Amino acid sequence: MKDQLQISQQVCFPVYVFAKEIISHYRPLLEELKLTYPQYLVMMVLWEYETQTVNQLGEKLKLDSGTLTPLLKRMEQKDFVSRVRSKVDERSVNISLTEKGKALKNKAACIPNQLMESMEVSTEDLLVLKNIITKILNK
Rank of each mutant, 00 (worst) to 15 (best):
M1A: 11
M1G: 14
M1R: 02
K2C: 09
Q4Y: 08
L5H: 13
S8W: 05
Q9Y: 08
V11W: 12
P14W: 07
P14S: 06
P14H: 07
V15L: 15
Y16K: 08
V17M: 09
K20E: 07
K20W: 09
H25D: 03
Y26A: 04
R27C: 06
R27K: 14
L29T: 10
L29Q: 09
L29A: 02
L29W: 13
L30T: 01
E31P: 00
E32W: 01
L33N: 08
L33V: 06
K34Q: 14
L35G: 00
L35C: 00
T36N: 01
T36K: 06
Y40G: 04
V42L: 05
M44E: 13
V45K: 10
W47A: 04
E50F: 14
E50K: 15
E50M: 13
E50P: 03
E50D: 13
V54A: 09
V54Y: 06
L57V: 05
E59M: 11
E59C: 12
K60I: 07
L61A: 06
K62S: 14
L63K: 14
L63S: 14
L63Q: 14
D64S: 12
D64T: 10
S65M: 09
T67P: 04
T67S: 13
T67K: 14
T67I: 14
T69H: 11
L72P: 01
L72H: 03
L72W: 02
K73R: 12
R74G: 04
R74K: 12
K78A: 15
F80A: 01
S82H: 07
R83W: 05
V84Y: 03
R85S: 14
R85Y: 03
R85G: 07
S86N: 11
S86T: 07
S86H: 02
K87L: 05
K87N: 10
K87H: 09
K87Y: 09
D89I: 15
D89S: 12
D89K: 14
V93A: 09
V93E: 05
V93K: 12
N94S: 09
I95H: 02
I95Q: 00
S96Y: 04
S96C: 08
T98H: 04
T98E: 03
K100V: 08
G101L: 03
N106W: 01
K107H: 11
K107V: 02
K107L: 11
A108T: 05
A109E: 09
C110P: 04
C110G: 03
C110H: 14
I111A: 04
I111R: 08
Q114L: 15
L115F: 04
M116T: 02
S118V: 01
S118G: 10
S118R: 07
M119V: 03
E120T: 09
V121N: 00
V121L: 10
V121A: 07
S122G: 14
T123V: 15
E124N: 03
E124Y: 09
E124S: 03
L127D: 07
V128N: 05
L129K: 05
K130E: 13
K130W: 07
N131W: 07
I133C: 10
K135Y: 14
L137W: 07
N138L: 08
